[in-house]
């Protein structure tokens, strides 16, 4: 019996793999009844991003259901979900699948995973822009992203078309009143809270 622990067949030990704290955290942070998923696959069937996923969304749900924390949090799929809501809309069990994907991404961030670094760079850049200006400064964001992502020329070709059509503002369009300061304060409190929470 002791030998079975070495698991030469590489079967998945369901009991050993189950992280109950993880199951509970996903359930409470997403507010969804994960046990109600019966693996019909409708989320995957309608998901426009399945092509780029390493694990299709219904299997992500299955991993969460079984409590396989590591595989769920380290996958790329959760970073590539665009929250297009096809899965949530069509789930026959009323599960807000997109919100579960969101929650997994939050957890992955806290756990330090970033298998899609450009996605994280873009998101962080976007929010930094909002924190600084109160609104998104598109040109600034594009410039920062171009540098940080290591793809400086990807969108360079768009420049002329945008310039000639007056679509590229070189100065941020900031809110006229207290808005900028208030948004900055929201971010400050958010980062303070994160520190409190003792990010993993």
């Amino acid at each position: 019996m002791q030998n079975s622990r070495q698991n030469p067949l590489r079967t998945v030990d369901l009991a050993a793999m189950r992280d109950e704290a993880f199951q509970a955290a996903v359930a409470s942070e997403s507010g969804q009844l994960l046990a109600s998923c019966y693996q019909c696959g409708n989320c995957t069937a309608g998901c426009a991003y399945t092509h780029d996923y390493d694990i299709p969304v219904h299997q992500v749900m299955r991993l969460v259901q079984l409590g396989h924390r590591e595989r769920a949090l380290s996958c790329r799929s959760i970073w590539l979900c665009a929250t297009c809501q096809a899965c949530t809309t069509r789930c026959p069990n009323n599960i807000d699948v997109a919100r579960v994907m969101d929650v997994l991404r939050h957890m992955a961030r806290r756990a330090g995973h970033a298998p899609e670094p450009t996605v994280k760079t873009f998101t962080d850049g976007f929010l930094a822009s909002v924190a600084r200006h109160g609104r998104v400064f598109e040109a600034g964001l594009a410039a920062v992203f171009a540098i940080k992502s290591g793809k400086p020329l990807q969108d360079a070709g768009l420049g002329p078309a945008m310039l000639s059509r007056g679509k590229l503002a070189f100065l941020p369009h900031e809110p006229e009143g207290q808005g900028k300061a208030e948004v900055a304060a929201i971010f400050e409190r958010f980062y303070a809270r994160k520190k409190q929470g003792g990010g993993e």
Partner: peptide, 11 residues
Amino acid sequence: VRGADTLLGTQ
């Protein structure tokens, strides 16, 4: 008809 084959794990 676009669906999923959950046994294959694909669309």
